[in-house]
Nucleic acid binder design. Structure first.
Length: 220
DNA sequence: ATCCCGAGGG
DNA sequence: CCCTCTGGAT
């Protein structure tokens, strides 16, 4: 019988093979830009975020610029991403603290990132991995959480416990990739509504696939 | 009509 | 633990 570790290892290998570009997609951005884009991405599609970030970064190239931004003007800029008041508050609060406590540079440690208003573990994990190329944890958003649940990666549903279990299950060298792979696969294939089990390369390893493959299409 | 790439607050 | 915040996709 394959151990949980072996099973997860197999899944990680398949994920990596199918999303070779997942990690590099954001590499050209600075930690500051990653932070901003990640905050904006909550409850919103990438495509929508991508329509506003160019103008945003032109207007506010650095944390210092953003820290000085007019709140209402900023809210207008990011409105299409939804939750614009909360997000403007987070962007302003975080950039101000970055200026005051970290000399204007986004901090590269988990405990420091967590002191930024609007930044919790998920966002911090993404900033660390996409912005700094290092992983101190594994970002568990709703996509990763759903994927983990369907694949039965861990016995838990709580994101904190999922992360803890994954960290114990996966070798450290894979943490970085997992931050992108779980989210990407959960978003693109293992979707909440109609999971695309028919085109999922993890199908044979997935205890939930049979449920969704019943009948003609999938889900519904 | 209902759900969602989070986080803060009661 | 519950609620709220937003616009877009389905």
């Amino acid at each position: 019988m394959a151990s949980a570790r072996e099973r997860v290892g197999k899944i990680v290998r398949l994920l990596r093979r199918h999303y070779p570009q997942a990690r590099t997609a954001l590499e050209f951005r600075s930690p500051f830009q990653i932070l901003v884009a990640t905050i904006l991405a909550a409850q919103c599609t990438d495509a929508r975020v991508n329509t506003i970030t160019p103008g945003l970064f032109r207007k506010y190239p650095t944390a210092a610029d953003l820290a000085r931004a007019d709140r209402e003007e900023l809210e207008r800029e990011i409105r299409p991403a939804g939750f614009f008041r909360n997000k403007a508050k987070s962007l302003l609060g975080a950039s101000r603290r970055i200026v005051e406590a970290y000399g204007g540079a986004v901090p590269g440690a988990m405990d420091e990132l967590l002191t930024l208003p609007g930044v919790a573990r998920k966002t911090a994990n993404i900033v660390l991995s996409a912005g700094f190329g290092k992983a101190e944890g594994i970002a568990v958003d709703t996509h990763a959480r759903r994927l983990s649940g369907r694949l039965g990666l861990t016995g838990h549903d709580d994101p904190v416990k999922i992360e803890r279990d994954l960290l114990a299950l996966v070798p450290r060298k894979d943490w970085l990739d997992l931050n992108f792979l779980l989210v990407e696969h959960g978003r693109a294939v293992c979707r909440a509504r109609k999971p695309r089990c028919g085109e999922c390369f993890l199908c044979e390893l997935c205890p939930s696939a049979a449920t969704f493959l019943k009948g003609t299409g999938s889900g519904r």
